[in-house]
């Protein structure tokens, strides 16, 4: 079977299921709004990073991206929907690749848009505090943020395929990101630097002193996402639908 029609079908599925475009809108709105607010606060703190301040909304934006990825997959695991999908496209690898592409592309596009809007909004509220940022740094943060949000959506989508449940995926990932990494992160040593969210967010920082640089950090997040996708694909190919 050709790939394009299958991709078209998967894209239609996302478009016609209201909560999914809704999650992308939420990603844009909360991401941009919180970047604007983030820019207004805490410029005086010692660990203040003006570049990260322009992408502060990524904290909330990633929750929307994860929900988007998990929900897009979990719609297949209710009431035999997957059987219908696989009866239409029996090549499971093919189908999975199309589904993940249909998740990745809009997540990337909305992620980039959010990052760009965040930058402009935060520059307004930051004022002179952001004057030291180079064009290169700002471009890195915008591209990095878009790619990061896409990777998190894929990470969630892969995990949801592996666990065959969006609810389980979200109840694992969201507390993990909000609590484990964010709250107790600093106490747990360098291992935390390699967690998918922490590693990927290095690209949003002007100054980084951990074991990972901006692009190697994003690479680590990509590895997490790839692992989740491979595990999901493996389960999908192996199991009865």
């Amino acid at each position: 079977m050709q790939f394009a029609p299958v991709l078209h079908a998967e894209w239609l599925k996302i478009r016609t299921l209201r909560p999914l475009p809704g999650a992308l809108v939420a990603l844009f709105v909360t991401g941009t709004a919180f970047s604007a607010l983030g820019g207004a606060s805490s410029t005086s703190e010692p660990e203040f990073d003006p570049l990260f301040a322009t992408q502060f909304g990524v904290f909330l934006g990633q929750i929307a991206a994860i929900s988007f990825g998990a929900m897009a997959v979990s719609a297949e695991f209710r009431n035999g929907a997957l059987r219908l999908s696989l009866a239409a496209v029996p090549q499971r690898g093919h189908w999975f690749a199309a589904k993940m592409t249909a998740i990745a592309l809009p997540a990337l596009a909305v992620g980039l848009l959010t990052a760009l809007a965040s930058l402009f909004a935060a520059r307004v509220t930051l004022g002179p505090a952001a004057d030291g940022l180079t064009t290169g740094e700002q471009a890195r943060a915008v591209v990095g943020c878009g790619v990061y949000l896409m990777l998190m959506a894929l990470f969630a989508a892969g995990l949801a395929t592996l666990l065959r449940s969006g609810v389980t995926t979200l109840s694992l990932l969201i507390p993990f990101i909000l609590i484990v990494s964010f709250v107790i992160g600093d106490a747990a040593g360098t291992a935390v630097e390699f967690m998918p969210d922490r590693a990927g967010q290095v690209i949003l920082q002007q100054a980084y002193d951990g074991p990972l640089g901006p692009w190697s950090g994003l690479g680590v997040t990509a590895l997490w996402a790839a692992t989740a996708l491979l595990a999901g694909a493996w389960r999908l190919r192996r199991r009865d639908a």
Binding site: N79, R83, A87
Partner: peptide, 14 residues
């Protein structure tokens, strides 16, 4: 196979 397989939130046509 299963008449419940259609997603509740989609229209029949979609």
């Amino acid at each position: 196979l299963d008449a419940q397989a259609a997603h509740d939130s989609r229209t029949g046509r979609d």
